[in-house]
């Protein structure tokens, strides 16, 4: 009996789409060959358009609701745990390692879900200015984030490249090269949960093809690289980014409160106190 294999597609604007170029690249994992979408420059532009729209919807979702949507994601992964473990094992992880990866993933989603309605209390504050003014620093999500995920086959690593930005209300374009099979499977759980379309777009391909477009695209507000690039790669990203003062973070911290700080803009509001 011939096995029916899944066709992997990018996930953009809440829909599964092929690369508009029609191109794929072949990924070999443990003697199996996967045809994965090879994201083009045009695909990136489409993803940014969708992410801008997703940002509007996601950032205006109440923290309480964002928390529940994130928590629901953990429920979905929990429900699909077996299939993730199977996929990871299929690609060479031991059962123990595969289980651990998924357990950690779930734990991290729950952690960030619980942070969704608290981070602003941790990162902002009332400032004691020396005149008759009310002065508060609160935080806005920075906007559209492009996040390059790491090269290990791991749901948890993928999540840690997405969750901090997503938790604070950014929309995320998650881009995977080596980890695409996991990422595109994960897209299914995103699709089945309640994230507004465009808040999380998941793409696969060769990063070098789109490096220039991503770093030059003015409507991407921040580029997070969760993967070590060769120095020339990082240099050209940062050079391109300087043209629009874009924020670039190479291997940002994924620890605790530090993980979310890059994705925040501090907005300080003054108002007089009078009668």
């Amino acid at each position: 009996m011939i096995e029916i294999k899944k066709t992997y597609k990018n996930y953009v604007g809440g829909k599964y789409v092929r690369s508009e170029s029609g191109k794929t690249y072949t990924k070999e994992l443990k003697n199996e060959f996967y045809e994965l979408p090879l994201t083009s420059k045009k695909d990136i532009r489409d993803a940014v358009t969708s992410s801008k729209d997703g940002y509007k919807k996601w950032s205006s979702t109440t923290p309480y609701l964002r928390m529940q949507i994130l928590y629901r994601l953990s429920e979905m992964i929990e429900g699909n745990k077996e299939s993730y473990v199977e996929l990871l094992m299929h690609h060479g992880l031991t059962k123990q390692k595969a289980n651990k990866d998924i357990d950690e993933s779930i734990q991290n989603i729950v952690w960030f879900a619980g942070l969704a309605d608290k981070w602003e209390q941790l990162a902002g504050n009332l400032n004691p200015v020396s005149e008759e003014y009310f002065n508060i620093s609160h935080q806005n999500p920075i906007g559209v984030v492009f996040s390059l995920s790491g090269s290990n086959l791991s749901l948890n690593e993928l999540l840690m490249s997405i969750l901090p930005a997503l938790t604070v209300g950014c929309s995320v374009i998650s881009y995977s090269e080596e980890n695409s099979v996991v990422a595109l499977k994960f897209a299914e759980d995103i699709n089945n949960s309640d994230f507004p379309s465009g808040s999380l777009n998941i793409l696969s391909g060769k990063f070098e093809n789109i490096l220039d477009d991503v770093s030059k695209h003015v409507e991407i507000n921040l580029v997070a690289l969760h993967k070590e690039l060769d120095n020339n790669g990082l240099k050209s990203i940062e050079e391109n980014a300087s043209e629009s003062v874009k924020r670039v973070f190479s291997q940002p911290s994924i620890e605790g409160l530090s993980s979310i700080l890059p994705y925040l803009e501090t907005k300080t509001v003054w108002h007089p106190k009078g009668t």
């Binding site: 400032n127 620093s137 806005n140 803009e265 003054w270 108002h271």
Partner: peptide, 26 residues
Amino acid sequence: AGVVWANTFNKFDPASPFGGYKESGF
């Protein structure tokens, strides 16, 4: 905008963070 002055303008204090969004810096 990194600083919003409501019913006032150009107020500064060492305790009050200052800095920009977008191409006004980071």
